[in-house]
């Protein structure tokens, strides 16, 4: 619990790190109606594609320098030496980021979906999709961020972006399934299954990668 609280405090103090991605997400969502003709049907057509891409970009921004500060001031090195369960620390760090950034973005997704489509049922079903996909994207970009720890976050984002594309395909299908009321639970379960594999494997992989950086 202490590690959770410590990571929470660390992120809370770095206001720019957690508010920044949320604000970018909100700005994209607000800017969207300005770029299409103001007809409700036109807005609805491309809304969900934009929503998933915005979540993807926000998560990419959130993990920009997730380890960089700790790497530069030697905290990472000290943590690896002093804590035996380094992968669990990584998992907790990712969870805190999701709690502080992913969940608010998912809530805003629900609100924007409700505002644009004016359909409570669809918006309620979109919410769990947003929660799960934000956690998946966060894990993937943390992996990329660890790979390109001291080489800038762009490289990490580029090389891990292809891994996020299948999730985007499933999300696209998910929205169609929700709109037509068919098989959306299967797709939600598919995402949940993928998430469970990712959250158990990524912390271990990331910890090995960080150790390779520090060797």
């Amino acid at each position: 619990m202490n590690v959770f609280y410590l990571e929470y405090l660390k992120l809370k103090k770095k206001t720019r790190h957690w508010i920044g991605p949320i604000i970018v997400f909100i700005l994209i969502m607000i800017a969207y109606p300005l770029t299409v003709e103001f007809l409700e049907k036109d807005l609805e057509k491309g809304f969900y594609s934009l929503l998933w891409i915005s979540i993807l970009l926000s998560m990419m921004l959130a993990t920009e320098d997730i380890f960089l500060e700790d790497y530069n001031d030697g905290t990472l090195e000290q943590t690896i030496i002093s804590i035996s369960s380094f992968p669990f620390l990584i998992a907790k760090k990712i969870f805190i980021y999701w709690f502080m950034i992913g969940i608010p973005i998912s809530l805003f997704s629900f609100l924007f979906s409700l505002g644009i489509t004016k359909n409570l049922n669809i918006s309620l079903l979109v919410f769990p999709f947003a929660m799960i996909c934000s956690y998946i994207f966060l894990n993937l970009f943390v992996f990329g961020s660890a790979l390109s720890l001291n080489k800038g976050s762009v490289l990490g984002a580029i090389i891990t972006m292809p891994l996020a594309l299948p999730v985007l395909i499933v999300l696209g299908k998910g929205v169609i399934a929700i709109q037509f009321g068919i098989n959306y639970l299967e797709l939600l379960l598919l995402l949940l299954g993928s998430l469970s594999i990712i959250i158990t494997s990524v912390p271990f992989i990331v910890s090995y990668i960080i150790k390779a950086h520090l060797e």
């Binding site: 992996f143 972006m161 990668i209 390779a212 950086h213």
Partner: peptide, 30 residues
């Protein structure tokens, strides 16, 4: 795109041994 990413990841490191390890992890995940 994964192939291109792998090539660019390795080229961005001057320490070959570190680059090899990171490349291997990315290949396995990919």
């Amino acid at each position: 795109i994964m192939y291109l990413g792998l090539i660019s990841l390795h080229n961005s490191f001057s320490n070959h041994e570190k680059a090899d390890k990171l490349l291997s992890w990315l290949v396995i995940v990919g």
